[in-house]
Structure formats: C-alpha cells, structure tokens
C-alpha cells in the first residue's frame, strides 16, 4: 500500500501527469453535477453531451469555419492595429513637446474600452463585419500606441543627445535609439493589445457578428443549445492559453531579456 502511494506521489511530480489527473477530476465532477441537476441539457450538459455536439458541429463543418473566422478577425485586426500603432507611437515620441501634448489623450483613449464604443460604431456601420473590425482595431491600436509612446518617453535623453552629437538625423535617431529603446514596451504593449483584441473579437461577434466563436456561443444560448455554448467557451479558453503561453509570453520575455538593458 505504501509502495503504491509512493508511486502515486512520483506521478504527481510530473506536470503533464498532474494536468491529466486534474482534467479527469474536473470531468468526473462535472458529470456528477450534470447528472444530479434537473434539465442538464439546458443548465449544464455533461462532458459527453458537449463532445457529442462538437462532433456534430465538426461533421457539419460549422466549428472549423467559425473558428477560422474568429482567428482571421483577430489576426487581421491586431496586425493592422500593431502595424499602425507602433510607428504612430514612435512618431509622437520623436519630439518631446509633441509627446507631452499627446500623452494624456492617448492615455484617455486606451482606457476607454473598445466594447464601450461599440454602440457608437454600430450606429455608423450597423451589424456588420466592418463594425466588428473597427472595434478590434480601436482596442488594439490605442494600447500599443500608448505603450510605445510611454516607452519612448522613458528612454534617457542622453542616448538621444549622444546620437545627435554624432550627427544623426531624426530618422536615424528613431531607428537606432527610439525603436530599440522602446523594444520592451513594444513587446509588452503588443501582448496587451492582442489580449484586448481577443476579448473585443468575442464581444464584437456576440453583439454584431454573423459567424465566429462569439456568435456561436451567443446563438447557442438563444437557441437553448447550451452544449454549444460550453464547447465555444472551452475553445476560446484553450486558444488563448496556447496563444498567450506558447507564443506571446515567450516572445515578450525574450525581447525584454534581449533589449531590456535600458534599466540600470
């Protein structure tokens, strides 16, 4: 018995094994709850029901299509947001007076959540893809631009002065001093922006979409197909974990390690 317990403890030390045990425990607990409550199909379908519905949606081809819709929206929206936001932040930071001038305004816009401006945008463009994209763009542009601007403002003035005394032009200062100096902020800001964009995609699809994961969980609730709602939630959670933990966080950590030498 003791030996068995020891083996069990050894198993616990392996992270993957932990995760498997955890998932099994959660699934069993979930099944038990689902079996005991009245009307589980409406309130909490069992894991089995959820996986059956996922098979169903896979066969119909709905799940892959919704999933790719959401991902494409995220990728397009956040890449445009980042591609515009990074140079914009750098340009504002080029001149100290301009930087001081726009800092409060950028701070204001990055704090106003994209979801809050959604009703305005929906009056402008109705329930359409443009509306969803506009909200995503808004939510990803301002956090990155604000972060880059803050990053540039934190670069010690002596670095800029040193480059100026060597005869560097505005463009060379931007390329050789401001851009690398703001690198850690660019990395952090990008992760923040993409995180906000991801939430905006889901919210936007719920409110004004025609397809996508957000649309799927919203209509699932409307049509009393709770299994689809839970399936969508699991997909949303898993996607963000993979994106954040295996792509964005490592990139951010590497960048800060490589370029974050500004802090003494």
């Amino acid at each position: 018995m003791d030996r068995l317990w020891w083996h069990f403890q050894q198993l616990l030390k392996i992270d993957a094994m932990n995760l498997v045990i955890l998932v099994i425990v959660v699934l069993i607990g979930w099944t038990i709850i689902s079996e005991t409550i009245p009307n589980p199909a409406r309130y909490l379908p069992s894991p089995l029901a959820v996986s059956l519905s996922s098979v169903d949606m896979l066969v119909k081809g709905l799940l892959p299509s919704y999933y790719s819709d959401t991902l494409v929206r995220l990728i397009i929206g956040s890449s445009i947001g980042l591609a515009a936001g990074i140079p914009f932040g750098l340009l504002l930071g080029l001149n100290k007076t301009v930087a001081d001038m726009f800092h409060p305004m950028m701070n204001f816009f990055q704090s106003v959540s994209g979801i809050a401006i959604f009703p305005i945008v929906v009056i402008w463009w109705g329930n359409s893809d443009t509306t969803v994209l506009a909200v995503i763009l808004y939510t990803s542009f301002f956090p990155i631009a604000f972060n880059v601007l803050s990053g540039v403002r934190e670069i010690p003035i002596r670095y800029v002065n040193a480059a100026r005394t060597m005869g560097a032009s505005k463009y060379q200062i931007m390329k050789d001093v401001l851009f690398p100096g703001a690198m850690p902020h660019i990395a952090t800001g990008s992760r923040l922006s993409i995180g906000f964009a991801w939430r905006a995609v889901i919210a936007g699809e719920m409110l004004a979409g025609r397809q996508g994961l957000g649309w799927m969980i919203f209509t699932g609730q409307d049509a009393d197909r709770t299994a689809e709602v839970i399936l969508g939630m699991v997909m949303i959670g898993l996607t963000w974990i993979i994106l954040d933990h295996y792509l964005l966080r490592p990139i951010e950590a590497d960048t800060i390690e490589r370029w974050g030498l500004v802090q003494r």
């Binding site: 955890l22 609730q221 709602v229 949303i236 898993l238 954040d244």
Partner: peptide, 26 residues
C-alpha cells in the same frame, strides 16, 4: 497550487465576457 494553477490559467483565458451566454442561461 499544482492543481488550482491550471484552473486559474484556464479561467483567466475564458476572458470574462465569454461567460455571458452561459450566465444568461443560468
């Protein structure tokens, strides 16, 4: 924490708003 950390990671990843439809059902 070995058990609850992954739960936390997962719960944080289902970014707040994705709970809205289920919350309406409940």
């Amino acid at each position: 924490s070995k058990f609850l950390e992954p739960v936390g990671v997962f719960a944080n990843s289902i970014s707040g708003i994705a709970w809205i439809p289920l919350a309406i059902v409940w």
